[in-house]
Design a binder for these strands. Structure first.
Lengths: 228, 228, 228, 228
DNA sequence: ACTTACGGGACTTCCCGTTAAT
DNA sequence: ATTAACGGGAAGTCCCGTAAGT
């Protein structure tokens, strides 16, 4: 969640022989998951997508559940990196915490607007996908997902706290809850985009979240914002 | 979405022989879907839950996909009824469109707070569940889902338009987008509740949505609201 | 075997209520058998063809095997009647036994040449059909089939014996074997017609059989015959 | 058709791992087909016969229909080889085309007389078997069958043409039709053997076919032949 | 590291047959 | 006599996983 769906190959410098194969599996499985869910992503389908063979698959993932875990771990790591990078960009752009927070939100909006290849799977959150087949997965997978959300919440909540110190909110809110909310509206927007078969629905939700941040914290609220 | 998960038996007055059986299947399948997803909801599991037999299942649902369609159709119908009833309650409670809208939102919050049986599946939206296995499902299922969201959006947007006529929004917004937003934050909250394994997370999101409505439309904004 | 495939309704005078239904089942099952074999003729397919329901089927045939038996018995009875009628026609046409035998064979050829409706199943012998799934059937069914062949053989062999008394065969043959042979070439022709997807193949075989009878018995063999 | 049922193992010199398994399936399936037909030849029965597993079966035949095709293709290939070998033997035995043709026919008769193991399925033609469940099979299977018959017809017709050049037939016939006839009487004899539950019935039909060839072509017809 | 053959079980589908009701 | 709901099991397909081989 909260970052553009990037299925592009990793840029790891050192490729042990076979690392590429493993990533091919992860890339294919990720795309299939967003189309068919986890149980619908059969090993055979992954093999068909990659052109590799069963032996190769089970060499890298002794159990299919290992694939799910690796997928979620990679997805969580990408999410953290994506957040950290966006925070850095925001902090470079302004010294004011509110401007940084708004910059962060706009950054996510912009990335959500990037064009996607025609054959890309419908936009979606791999974790939400797993969350809706939750009892098919191990507690380890659930742990990674929870920690991933908590990481986002903690990092963003820290920023929100700075904002709240400087800009008293118009309504009583908690920093963690605001951070969570930004996560929730992103995932909610993705679901809505799928239900309506209309990916831009996500953008509209993210803009409401930006509105909310401004209404909550912006002291002088003139009509300087543009909304679609 | 946007309503408590009600798996209670139907109260239709007169059952043709076999209607009860069909509903038993739907009830069990609904609960299983929210735990395992559609592919994880094997017919065998449904039979184990209901104590019925394969013959009975196949009699009512010649293909397993027919179960998915029936499930989604029933869920959509319940959602519409739930919305219509909540709208009626809101209109009885006040004559002011903004108060009605806020009442509606609080109504959903209260229903989300109702205690659930210990063996209930984790809170979730059946449509979101299907949306994350989207390519396993027919276009008919997708159509029912889209129409269901559109119904919610249209009904709520009508109400929002009345609000906007009387209470000019502090930021430029569109009625449909606001209605959509209420849907999205509900589904996003459900996903978040699952990712954190913490169902009350949904409540916090719904309250932010209420905040947003107030900040947008309420002319005199004092500190009378409660936050968790 | 050895008669045109007649699937037309029976002309029984007295129809007890339900007799029509039973015959509908038999007609539909007969056509399906010649397309799909016995195991491929599922009860559901018969129901789809007839528009009747399962209860009606099992009312008339407590087991599916009863259908097979009824089918074979009806087919055997029709075969006997068909033979008896052809024999009568032959005996009316000439007093000479050889001419009668040749008339009989030409009668079968003519009936095999009758046009068939476009939606008729490919020409075939219901008994051959059953014979190729032989171990799926009861000994009772096998008995009816054997007796049916024996009836044909005995009736025709009697005629062949008269021929042999008057016209000593050019090669030593037995009356029963000649009768059998006429049966065999008919069924072989049907198989060939199916293998080549070319129904007229049957006619060519029947004409060879006629040739054989002439070569065996005809004292003065001039070139009065026409062959295709 | 027109050759003894040989289910003996292939004598290919070098087996890739797994070829033996595939042939085991084909051998077992062939025997079961002749007893139960294709639909009666369940995969489970094949497994019971071979002692192999479902996984192995599905590995070699992704669909059951692929088994049918493989079976028919192997059967057709064996039929061609069998015919070619018999033709070679006939051409070694005599220089006279008529003697060769008669030798060929007697060759088939002799092979049909070979004793069969007690547990062998009733004599039958795999193609006739499929032909009587024709609509259960793909057009590819039908094509292989038609080509198989055409091969036999063309090869034998070529020989018959030589005979006709040297020995003008007593009745006007076509070479192709005579070749077809030899095929038809073989398959008809097999059906008759099954209907009478009396395998030797086939031999009697084949001898009539031999008679026919002699009556048609043999210039001086003495009583040197033996009949059963 | 990667391949092919295989093992074996689960799942959907299909089918024969029964039963309660009319 | 005929229907719909249902029972229950078998069939074909699919799929995860193993293992021997290269």
């Amino acid at each position: 969640m909260m970052r553009a769906m990037t299925l592009t190959a990793h840029d790891s410098v050192k490729h042990r022989r076979g690392e590429g194969t493993r990533d091919k599996f992860l890339d294919a499985a990720c795309a299939l998951m967003l189309r068919h869910g986890f149980n619908g992503t059969t090993v055979e389908r992954v093999l068909a997508q990659t052109g590799l063979t069963k032996g190769a698959f089970f060499h890298h993932f002794p159990q299919k559940s290992h694939l799910a875990l690796a997928l979620i771990e990679r997805y969580a790591a990408e999410g953290r990196e994506s957040l950290d990078a966006a925070i850095r960009r925001a902090e470079l752009a302004s010294d004011d915490p509110l401007q940084q927070l708004l910059f962060l939100q706009r950054d996510y909006i912009e990335r959500a607007q990037l064009p996607t290849p025609a054959d890309a799977p419908p936009a979606g959150c791999l974790m939400a996908c797993v969350a809706y087949e939750i009892e098919e997965h191990s507690s380890q997978v659930r742990g990674v997902m929870r920690e991933s959300v908590e990481y986002f919440r903690n990092v963003v909540a820290a920023k929100v706290r700075y904002v709240m110190e400087k800009y008293p909110p118009r309504m009583p809110v908690q920093a963690e809850a605001v951070a969570e909310y930004l996560y929730a509206i992103y995932d909610g927007g993705l679901v809505l985009g799928r239900l309506l078969a209309e990916p831009p629905a996500l953008i509209r939700q993210l803009q409401h979240a930006e509105n909310y941040l401004q209404l909550l914290f912006q002291p002088t609220l003139q009509q300087e914002q543009a909304t679609s």
